[in-house]
């Protein structure tokens, strides 16, 4: 086989392999981070009926990962109830909301609603923290990093551990 032929075959292989490319999940990491964040947050009221309610709004691959993760894993000693909804009225008694990228257009509406309650809001979309989402995850050179809107979280009735703040990028709200 000539050198030229070898490179043509290699090129075809690389292109073919590229076509087979699958989405590599970063959501395992993000789900683990969501669970970890809850360890550093204090909610003002006892969690109702011994169930920690975690809601996901919008379309996200995170749903499947969260379902698998919280089959038997507890948050703050409570069983976790997962709520997948787009209806804000379903959210009055939840403890944590993950807001998907798909909700970018209605983010202000969602936050206007959640601001009335001690609900931790988490996202993974650029600019969410600026809007007032409490914690926003992002990818930095293969690491998951997170930013915290300190003003927003201080305005809520939630208490955040300084240990969580110390590793975060602190963001101020767009006022």
């Amino acid at each position: 086989m000539t050198l030229k032929n070898k490179y043509i075959i290699l090129l075809l292989y690389l292109l073919f392999a590229n076509a087979l490319q699958a989405q590599v999940s970063e959501y395992n990491h993000k789900a683990a981070f969501i669970e970890r964040f809850t360890r550093f947050i204090e909610w003002p009221n006892s969690i109702e009926r011994d169930t920690f309610k975690l809601a996901v709004i919008g379309k996200t691959p995170l749903k499947a990962t969260l379902s698998e993760l919280f089959i038997d894993l507890k948050i703050k000693g409570h069983n976790v109830e997962l709520i997948y909804t787009n209806n804000l009225n379903d959210l009055t008694k939840v403890n944590l909301i993950f807001i998907s990228k798909s909700e970018k257009k209605r983010i202000n509406e969602i936050l206007a609603f959640t601001d009335k309650y001690p609900i931790l809001t988490i996202g993974d979309s650029k600019g969410f923290c600026d809007k007032g989402v409490h914690i926003n995850m992002y990818v930095d050179d293969n690491y998951i990093r997170y930013e915290i809107n300190q003003d927003a979280i201080e305005k809520s009735d939630l208490k955040v551990s300084s240990q969580l703040l110390s590793s975060a990028k602190i963001i101020k709200s767009n006022d």
Partner: peptide, 25 residues
């Protein structure tokens, strides 16, 4: 392509890590 992440670690494995380790997976 999408970002690269180790797919061999499941979320259940990851929650066992310390916070420092999680930040440095």
């Amino acid at each position: 392509s999408g970002q690269e992440f180790s797919d061999t670690l499941k979320a259940k494995d990851l929650v066992q890590l310390s916070f420092e380790e999680l930040m440095n997976v």
